[in-house]
Simulated assay, not measured.
Amino acid sequence: MQHSAQQQPTLEQCRTCVHSTRMTALQTRYDVEINMQPGSLYQAHRRPGFAVFDMDSTLIQQEVIDELARAVGLYDKVAAITEAAMRGEAPYTDFEASLRARVALLKGVETSIWEQLKAQTITFTPGAKELVRVLKKLGWKTAVLSGGFTPLAMWVKETLGLDYAHANHLVSDDGLNILTGELVPGAPIVHAQRKRELLLQLAAENSIPIERTIAVGDGSNDLLMMGAAGLGIAFNAKPKVQQAAPVRLNSGNLLDVMHILGYSAEEVNALRKEP
């Protein structure tokens, strides 16, 4: 049965229904994951839109700042801060403060670390390349909005063929070829609010209605952009993020985002085969 636009549930009502006690029990009993969205939104995503992605643990499988920390023997300390910040736990609910604290620990890391990470450490999430390729075939614009750092965000952009990349800028000493442990003064910090602002700004610049945007991420600092997008998708996210996000996707393959957008396996396979 189809409902009129006035009768359709809101995305928040859909989320509340999915997380209700009865629905949670049903999903647990049959080992399934149920997502719901208004029919009008489901239809909107059949038209070209704008997709924004977090980078760390979304487009790529690593947390970059943790990998940088290995270079100075501070992995455990930095990783603990990263995990707490991603879960939105005090005292690291202030992303900028936690970012500056972690970056300060990276003082003295050689700038050659970026090429080392690209060659030896960073791996793309299965399906990331295919998802971007399929979205581009359908006419979508794409972006990575990362609380990480520009050297890798720009590389991810170029490798995947994304349209935009925004991340944080680290200061380096070009004479010594090392990181100074500082962020570039005056450069915008890509925190949760900034991600939301960039989503809205880039969508407007491309004349894409907000209902035809999606935001995909895994951390608490992605929730604002998820909430601002036409559809926010928590991908293999922390429990608190899954509970708060409009839609969750626990999958080994990022290409499964296409099913959330309403595309069947046959349609996705056909798009993958097109030149």
Rank of each mutant, 00 (worst) to 15 (best):
M1V: 07
M1L: 09
Q2C: 03
Q2K: 12
H3L: 15
A5W: 05
P9H: 01
L11D: 06
V18M: 12
L26C: 07
R29K: 12
Y30P: 00
E33A: 03
N35P: 05
M36V: 07
P38Y: 11
S40F: 08
Q43A: 15
A44C: 03
R47N: 10
P48W: 09
P48E: 04
F50C: 02
M55A: 07
T58G: 12
T58W: 14
Q61H: 10
E63D: 09
V72R: 07
V72P: 02
L74Q: 13
L74C: 04
D76W: 01
V78F: 12
V78A: 08
V78M: 11
A80D: 14
T82W: 15
A85H: 11
M86T: 05
G88A: 07
G88Q: 01
A90W: 04
Y92P: 05
T93N: 10
D94L: 10
D94C: 10
F95V: 08
A97Y: 13
A101S: 12
A101I: 00
L105S: 05
K107G: 06
K107C: 03
G108E: 01
V109W: 02
V109K: 00
T111S: 07
T111Y: 08
I113Q: 02
Q116Y: 12
Q120N: 13
Q120W: 01
T121I: 14
T125P: 10
G127K: 01
A128V: 05
V132Q: 08
L135I: 06
K137S: 08
K137T: 02
G139M: 08
W140K: 03
K141T: 04
V144G: 09
T150V: 13
L152T: 09
A153D: 10
L162I: 04
D163L: 08
A167L: 03
H169M: 09
D173A: 00
D174K: 04
L179P: 03
T180F: 06
T180G: 02
G181T: 01
V184T: 09
P185L: 04
G186A: 06
G186I: 01
I189F: 15
R194S: 07
K195D: 11
E197G: 02
E197F: 07
E197Q: 14
Q201A: 12
A204W: 03
E205Q: 15
N206H: 15
S207E: 12
E211Q: 12
E211I: 01
R212E: 02
V216P: 05
G219N: 11
M225C: 01
A229P: 01
F235S: 10
N236K: 00
P239S: 00
Q243V: 00
Q243N: 05
V247H: 13
R248A: 00
S251W: 11
G252H: 14
L254G: 01
L255R: 10
D256E: 15
H259N: 04
G262T: 04
Y263N: 05
N269K: 11
N269S: 11
R272E: 15
E274R: 14
P275R: 13
